[in-house]
Amino acid sequence: MNTYLIFALGGAGLCGIGLFGFILHDDLLRRLIAFNLLGSGTFLILVGLAQSGRGGVDAVPQALVLTGIVVAVAATALTLMLIRRWTQLSQQSHLTEEDE
């Protein structure tokens, strides 16, 4: 057991919590936060697992995580915009049941 593995395991735990929240919650904002948790967990795993068992610092996962964070921020922004539009239109903070 080394530090990196602890990172990875912590990441896996975060993923679990995130997934749990994502499935459990109806509220759109909560789902978004859960998604962000899931993302952070994934990045931790990526960094942790990649470094474990190898000497020195691996630049690849760091580059990947940076890109991943940028993507996640963009996705979060888009989601927030859509959620705002939806709450304006429907006065609700969650998606209504299928009515079509």
Binding site: F22, T42, L46, L49, A50, L82
Partner: peptide
């Protein structure tokens, strides 16, 4: 409203899918 709702549904599915993919890729890299 109907389009925004469909888009939100699609977005959540797509995000979850991407994260599943990324998690798998991290494990593969590890």
């Amino acid at each position: 409203a109907s389009r925004v709702k469909a888009a939100l549904r699609y977005l959540f599915a797509a995000l979850l899918g991407s994260l599943g993919y990324l998690l798998g890729v991290s494990l593969l890299y590890g």
